[in-house]
Design a protein around this nucleic acid. Structure first.
Length: 194
DNA sequence: ATTTTCAAT
């Protein structure tokens, strides 16, 4: 269960919320997106820890218009007004890959903000009409897209979860499912490599 | 390979 106030905007993820949404063999009907920001300075990467957090989609069963997690993510980035004279890397760990529409929006955003680069790690591939084209559009816009492996799940656990000092414990089937999703993503990404 | 999946057949 989640906190009752503004569940799609908080600081650290509840352990169960993390597991229930990022466990890659299940298909939750909601999406969580954890993000972090770094300044790229030559080969160095300087983390901006104050700009780290997560967002969640708002479902059709909640008040107001439904909104995908990526929209909230874009809201946050825009609100920061990051310095155009610097270069930033945005990394997000998202429980579903962006849908066609969100992928288009992210791609447009990247096109308008050459000082930002985006790395996406997804737990699993979202398959709704146009999802393949969306992923290709994102890739063409310069985004790096990959499937989360145990390394990324552990990173999320350590950085975005209220883990109470407990170590990350991989679930059964994590590696197999990750490899499976990865194979499918590679197949999509290579579609237009011609 | 099976997937019904940012909910509502």
């Amino acid at each position: 269960m989640e906190a009752s106030t503004a569940p799609w905007t908080s600081c650290l993820l509840d352990e169960n919320t993390f597991t229930e949404n990022f466990m890659n063999r299940i298909r939750p009907r909601k999406t969580y997106l954890c993000y972090k920001v770094e300044i790229l300075d030559g080969d160095a990467r300087v983390p901006l820890d104050e700009k780290k957090g997560f967002v969640r989609n708002k479902g059709a069963n909640e008040p107001g218009m439904p909104r995908h997690a990526e929209c909230y993510f874009l809201d946050r980035i825009r609100s920061w007004n990051l310095d155009r004279g610097l270069h930033y890397r945005l990394t997000c760990f998202i429980s579903w890959t962006p849908c066609h529409s969100c992928a288009q929006e992210l791609a447009t955003f990247l096109g308008e903000n050459s000082h930002l680069s985006l790395h996406i790690f997804a737990s699993r591939i979202y398959r709704r009409p146009g999802y393949e084209a969306g992923i290709l559009t994102l890739q063409a816009a310069g985004a790096q897209i990959a499937i989360m492996t145990s390394k990324e799940f552990q990173h999320c656990w350590e950085n975005f979860v209220d883990h109470q000092e407990r170590p990350f414990r991989p679930w059964v089937g994590l590696e197999v499912e990750s490899q499976h999703q990865c194979n499918e993503l590679q197949a999509i990404l290579q579609t237009q490599a011609n």
